[in-house]
Design a protein around this nucleic acid. Sequence first.
DNA 1: GTCTATAGTCGGATAGAC
DNA 2: GTCTATCCGACTATAGAC
Lengths: 229, 229
Amino acid sequence: MAHTPLKRRSRAASTHVGDETRQRLIDAGVEIFGQYGYEAATTRMLAEAAGVNLAVIPYHFGGKEGLYHAVVKSVGENIIELLDEEKSKAIETVRNENATPDEVLATLDGVIRGFGRILISSDLGRRAAPIIMREQALPTTAFDQLYEDHLRSIHEVVTFLVARLKGLSPDSEGAILCAHAIIGQVVVFRMMRETAIRRLAWDTFDNQKTEKICDVIIENIHSILTNKD
Amino acid sequence: MAHTPLKRRSRAASTHVGDETRQRLIDAGVEIFGQYGYEAATTRMLAEAAGVNLAVIPYHFGGKEGLYHAVVKSVGENIIELLDEEKSKAIETVRNENATPDEVLATLDGVIRGFGRILISSDLGRRAAPIIMREQALPTTAFDQLYEDHLRSIHEVVTFLVARLKGLSPDSEGAILCAHAIIGQVVVFRMMRETAIRRLAWDTFDNQKTEKICDVIIENIHSILTNKD
DNA sequence: GTCTATAGTCGGATAGAC
DNA sequence: GTCTATCCGACTATAGAC
């Protein structure tokens, strides 16, 4: 460089050089941590995948663990973002005391199908799943943040809809347990994906198969939540 | 290989000195691999927890990875053993063409409740879960064996019962998908245990709470599989 | 079969030039 | 902010005595 460029100081949305480095590392981190797990992923892999120098990991994130935290946060935000529309609609439905059971059920269908699509067949789901599963199996300090910021709100939304349809309080054990079981029907297709694929002799869950899975789950949910008395 | 040195073949139940060492390492392995994950578990931890010398791990198992395989196998066997009674009963019910829907449903209840108890509140479930979850999230060569020897048979039993109640072929996609979703309702209470516990403000899943969870799941299953036409 | 001692490798983090 | 070079600790596996 001929003459020292002024460090571009941030006017509003101006991007710094380091910001891109940070983002590249986070993106690479989702991929590498997801593919190998936290311990098996090395800082050398992470740096190479991001196309940055090894030493910038401690510089920008304080170390491997700091990068991992940023990755978990990013994963949570990305998932929530994709569910945002369904979530808003659900909150609106819950607040509307005049919503009919059919409307509430249709809203729940939307949430479940959206959740299923992201989890089961999206690239984000594929990459994020091992990270989230690890935090569930062996929670680290990143789990608290993930739960408070993201997991809880999805769980609550489902619980609200279930509670409404079952005529229970959204704080009741019955509603929360039932909501958790319903969520389980979806997540099992990601968390026990290998088992499902072998049993079905499918090679993968493409979009069409994902819809079929969601159809079955939604049919089950209708059976569970439709009052037969 | 020229010829592999034969290990001393056990005459009946004669116990060798090394057999106890092997078993101690496997038991310690379930605990340590379960608690820390494969990579974070070190041979030093494993040896110390087993109360044996570090060098016997390569000697008896060929290395850390060999011990891990033995641990996965042991975990699968122990779970299956506890489910053996329910499994036999289920196979008997399925073979009996005169079994009534109520009988089939009752058999399924037994399988689900047995599975739930093991998975959710037993010590075995606690220790085994991270290991099985890891194999689902990031399958290693141990997964093939785990699936073929153990997971498949449980899945098939549930599928047979579901298929009978839905009037479907046990090979049909519909039956397998529905069975998988039902299994999901159980495993989610282990795999997303932390999330459930926080939502419920429970401190743990003791026996009483486990029964409550199983009650909800079984109620859901009845709704799903009871024909309302 | 089990022990001690150690080899050989690779990990994350850092110092200091630019 | 980014680079190269390097440190230091921790890991698995092995050699060889017993």
